[in-house]
Write a protein that binds this DNA or RNA. Structure first.
Length: 302
DNA sequence: AACGCGTGGAT
DNA sequence: TATCCAAGCGT
């Protein structure tokens, strides 16, 4: 029976997972939300904070957050304004609102306990394909493929032989990870975390440290001679300086600090251009991050 | 499907 | 210094 395989390895997927897990067993960073005794809620909070935000920035905020609101019910009992204030400058403050909403949903629908079921997780505000599977896998040990930007890059390189992953395609990305995932739930959990860790610390976007890579001998990109990427590039982020996005951040900073309604006049001091300020305020109100009240603009109290 | 959404670390 | 891009999500 002829085969296209030209190498001796009959199960490259299994080899990759085994090599990653061997490496991860010794290389895993001691992140606090990975401790054996943390609650599913603690894992959920970490995953919200880690959406598009690096570990180093999340860690201190996560510690404070868990001290103040150790359970979903604790957060649900606080006003959204306090969640947004505690979020401080972590970025994408909508996530603070989503986390508060998710806590309320957990209390109302699940008796205050983070659900284990994937569909129940996906139904929570702010929980998408990545976060739902991360919680199921890391908090509950369920066997699911967990795919984040790091994992996508590792698979693109090691399996696909290309330098970058290209635009996300959730179904295909999950399938690709599934084909590498060990059958054993504990090994699958470790591989999900290990692939992310490898992408975050070794197989990085900018300057990958291929000399230190535990799967270098399995890597299709390496075997191909590290060809440059020629596929579709992700659209460049718009310039931040002078953007509406920056204006939103400046307005939010005022609202967090004020503890009282902020008058339009005060906002004009931080965003001088009227059109830009108006777009920022309208957008924040539409997102529920700000409410128009007597005397100006404020954070949502409920 | 492509876009908008904050902030700051890394190079 | 400027640019890239980061444990994504909702629309």
């Amino acid at each position: 029976m002829p085969t296209l395989a030209t190498h001796a390895d009959p199960a490259p997927s299994r080899s990759i997972a085994e090599a990653v897990n061997r490496w991860f067993a010794g290389a895993a960073r001691p992140l606090p939300w990975r401790a054996a005794d943390v609650s599913p809620w603690a894992v959920l909070v970490s995953e919200f904070m880690l959406q598009q935000t690096q570990v180093a920035r999340v860690q201190p905020r996560w510690e404070e957050w868990m001290r103040r609101w150790p359970t979903p019910a604790d957060l649900a009992a606080a006003p959204p304004s306090e969640a947004v204030r505690m979020w401080d400058r972590l970025g994408y403050p909508r996530r603070a609102l989503w986390l508060h909403r998710a806590a309320t949903e957990i209390v109302e629908r699940h008796g205050g306990a983070v659900p284990r079921d994937l569909d129940a997780l996906l139904a929570l505000q702010g929980v998408g394909p990545y976060t739902a599977r991360a919680i199921a896998a890391f908090a509950f040990g369920e066997r699911h493929p967990v795919v984040d930007t790091n994992t996508r890059r590792v698979i693109a390189r090691a399996v696909g032989g290309v330098a970058e992953a290209g635009p996300p395609a959730t179904a295909r990305d999950l399938d690709a990870m599934s084909s590498l995932l060990p059958d054993d739930a504990a090994a699958a959990r470790a591989f999900n975390a290990g692939a992310m860790e490898l992408g975050a610390t070794v197989c990085t976007a900018r300057s990958p440290r291929c000399d230190d890579c535990p799967i270098a001998t399995h890597c299709a990109w390496r075997a191909a001679g590290y060809p440059e990427y020629d596929g579709p590039r992700r659209a460049r982020q718009a310039r931040f300086e002078g953007s509406d996005r920056e204006a939103r951040g400046l307005v939010m900073r005022e609202l967090r600090a004020a503890h009282r309604p902020v008058a339009p006049r005060e906002l004009a001091d931080v965003v001088a251009e009227p059109g830009r300020l108006a777009r920022a305020v309208d957008g924040l109100v539409a997102d529920g991050l700000a409410v128009r009240v007597e005397g100006g603009l404020a954070l949502p109290e409920a």
